[in-house]
């Protein structure tokens, strides 16, 4: 008996690296996944992933719960890509632009016309689902998530 354990979301990059033994980060991801599964078994975490990332049933992901994606999530992701926060992510993750940003840009700033919006729809969809499901931990190799106040696995 205990409250809901915190969720760790398995991102597409993490799942692909886990499946592909030729991936350069495969060994690191395997090690991380073993630790996550141990934590799951001890009921310290829940493991979840987008249903389109997991694909068909795979015993490798037996402990992972599927998150279904609705049309409203996709619409929200499209809006997010075009919103100021998309620009904020570019500024935060692109060293050529600079590392310091004003968090308020996500709330009220307008995107400067000359800054490309690099937050793709897939990443935006993950962010939308994380926001709606209250998930703050993610297993990913995608550096975009470093720009957010999230606990990222595997640790850098």
């Amino acid at each position: 008996m205990s409250p809901t354990p915190p969720t760790v979301l398995l991102d597409r990059s993490f799942v692909e690296a886990l499946r592909d033994d030729a991936h350069e980060a495969h060994a690191r991801v395997v090690e991380c996944y073993r630790e996550l599964v141990d934590d799951y078994e001890a009921r310290r975490i829940r493991l979840r992933a987008r249903i389109d990332v997991l694909g068909r049933r795979d015993p490798l992901f037996a402990p992972v719960e599927r998150i279904h994606i609705a049309a409203q999530h996709r619409r929200a992701a499209s809006r997010l890509v075009r919103s100021p926060i998309g620009v904020a992510v570019v500024v935060a993750t692109d060293p050529s632009i600079g590392h310091a940003i004003d968090p308020a840009i996500g709330e009220s700033g307008d995107p400067p016309a000359d800054v490309p919006v690099l937050l793709d729809e897939d990443t935006a969809l993950t962010l939308v689902l994380m926001r709606r499901e209250g998930i703050t931990r993610i297993a990913t190799l995608d550096a975009t998530f470093d720009a957010f106040e999230l606990t990222v696995f595997p640790a850098a």
Binding site: A92, A100, P103, G106, E107, L127, R131, F148
Partner: peptide
């Protein structure tokens, strides 16, 4: 500076 997840609508 990291962006809070609350910045996502």
């Amino acid at each position: 500076t990291r962006i809070p997840l609350s910045a996502v609508p």
